[in-house]
Design a binder for these strands. Structure first.
Lengths: 182, 182
DNA sequence: CAGTATCCTGTCCGATACTG
DNA sequence: CAGTATCGGACAGGATACTG
């Protein structure tokens, strides 16, 4: 990430990454959503250098994912509590857990999503909220939305064709040259 | 990423990040899943420096997310095609899109998930595959799985209590000191 | 306990030039 | 077209020391 806030910044994935794309950010969020609040809780759980923790914590606060809340006046002490957007991020984390476990954990799951009351294991899948249809099936694609700029729209104009990128004509090359943004 | 492959490498989130945590990786995956196959397709779509693209492409191949496939013999030419694990990653991307759009796109959606045939917009949510229950509700938590090491297990031992982290006793501090791994 | 202050290394990433 | 080779800058991340 760093300074490359341009290029594709219209893409919502890029925008998300700008907030949580750093290595530690998601791990910190994971802990915050688990109930961690205070500096040293994060530090001990993550074994992260204190200066890094400060930096990531601040950037998460800046992005509106954590709220810095004073819990003591003398001495002044703060805790970091997840905001709504952080709580909204939980499903992403869950999917990442499920995906990582499935593909990169030959020894089996080290982290499970469970029903808090019954303790029953849950297995996260993504469905369309309206129809309930699972979205894993290949009959869903991406398409340019109303707020898409010309660049994005060009890439996604053919909503249905998933292998169409290869078929793109070699023209319009120069036109695209420096039209990075948008 | 980089050399910090220790610390919390048992966490499936960390493992996932190790594969797709670089800034460009997810964007490349996004394009690959859209149908991009060849070097310059990625390059034009992403406006990424060629050396970076090479690096990211190679690391994705190494991680088993892309397959490098020869499509021409003279001259030798390769294309990069998403593997099953990459296709499994699509839901994560969708959620990231949905999350990013909801929280960081005041101008509205620039990317939509649509039914490929009808063009109808889909709205991704995460549910338990067995019960169909939405997982957003706070009555799901994380718990240590069978493959969890002592460290992880300690953090997640109390499956149900979501705000319990603060209640952890101040003892067992020295014991944890250098027990980073596991 | 909750950080801040320094210093250092690795590498992500960009820009540009070059090649079969 | 599909990259490789080099160079330089910014910053993530680590280690350690210090403070109210």
């Amino acid at each position: 990430m760093q300074h490359k806030s341009f290029a594709d910044m219209q893409c919502p994935i890029a925008r998300s990454l700008e907030r949580v794309g750093e290595w530690w950010s998601m791990l910190i969020l994971r802990d915050a959503l688990r109930g961690a609040r205070r500096f040293d809780q994060f530090q001990k759980s993550l074994a992260i250098a204190p200066n890094m923790l400060t930096r990531r914590l601040n950037s998460l606060v800046e992005s509106g994912l954590l709220e810095r809340r004073r819990y003591s006046d003398r001495p002044p002490r703060y805790e970091y509590v997840p905001t709504e957007s952080a709580r909204d991020f939980r499903p992403v984390l869950w999917l990442l857990i499920s995906w990582g476990t499935k593909h990169f954990a030959p020894e089996g799951p080290s982290l499970l999503i469970v029903d808090a009351k019954t303790g029953a294991r849950a297995d996260p899948i993504v469905v369309d909220s309206a129809s309930g249809r699972p979205l894993m099936s290949p009959d869903f694609t991406l398409a340019a939305g109303p707020a898409a700029g010309a660049r994005l729209r060009r890439l996604y104009e053919a909503a249905g064709e998933s292998n169409a990128a290869a078929a793109e004509g070699p023209r319009a090359k120069a036109a695209r040259k420096k039209a990075r943004l948008n």
